[in-house]
Computed example of a mutant assay.
Amino acid sequence: MSRVNPFNDLSDFAPKAQPKPVEPQQIERIATEMGFPSRQPVVAETVPKAALKRRRYTTGRNQQLNVKATAETVARFYRLADQRGVPLGELLDQALQALETATQKTV
């Protein structure tokens, strides 16, 4: 009993013709018309880049303190640091010093 070689005659399996190239603008137009969402990232700019201030200082501080606060408190803390022109850690030091001084006066 002999078997048929499946690779003997593959003339039926010729490659198909290459598809015509489509312009990217045409693809974009069709996708928009059909309502397909874009996969491009959406950049939401909540704060103008000109308003962002660099907050990196070389101070020798290497410990991190994480606290939960309201958005108003955080904004107030950053605003005070910006007004004084000091790093956030320095503002915290000043605030703690002021609290200790005020507490000592009342005791």
Score class of each variant (00 low, 15 high):
46 T>Y: 12
22 V>Q: 04
81 A>G: 07
55 R>P: 07
17 A>E: 15
102 A>C: 00
41 P>R: 14
67 V>M: 06
87 P>K: 01
92 L>K: 02
86 V>F: 02
13 F>G: 09
64 Q>V: 14
7 F>N: 14
79 R>V: 08
33 E>T: 07
79 R>K: 14
31 A>V: 03
47 V>Y: 15
29 R>C: 05
19 P>D: 05
100 E>K: 00
52 L>H: 13
14 A>T: 07
93 D>H: 08
84 R>T: 03
12 D>E: 15
38 S>N: 14
86 V>N: 02
71 A>I: 09
40 Q>F: 10
19 P>L: 05
7 F>E: 08
85 G>P: 01
1 M>A: 14
31 A>S: 11
6 P>N: 14
85 G>K: 02
2 S>L: 15
42 V>H: 05
91 L>H: 03
53 K>N: 14
40 Q>R: 14
45 E>I: 07
32 T>H: 13
75 A>R: 03
57 Y>L: 12
75 A>H: 03
15 P>I: 03
30 I>R: 05
91 L>F: 04
81 A>V: 10
77 F>M: 06
103 T>H: 00
103 T>N: 00
95 A>R: 06
29 R>N: 03
45 E>K: 09
43 V>P: 03
90 E>L: 08
91 L>S: 04
34 M>Q: 11
67 V>L: 15
57 Y>H: 15
23 E>G: 06
87 P>G: 10
47 V>G: 03
24 P>G: 02
60 G>D: 08
56 R>W: 04
19 P>Y: 02
7 F>T: 10
76 R>Y: 14
89 G>T: 11
63 Q>V: 12
89 G>K: 06
101 T>P: 00
65 L>Y: 08
52 L>R: 15
95 A>P: 00
94 Q>H: 02
104 Q>G: 00
95 A>V: 10
18 Q>E: 14
52 L>P: 05
18 Q>W: 09
9 D>R: 09
1 M>G: 12
105 K>N: 01
50 A>G: 11
45 E>T: 09
86 V>M: 05
84 R>V: 00
98 A>V: 02
59 T>W: 07
9 D>A: 07
13 F>W: 12
7 F>W: 11
10 L>S: 08
78 Y>A: 08
8 N>K: 13
107 V>N: 00
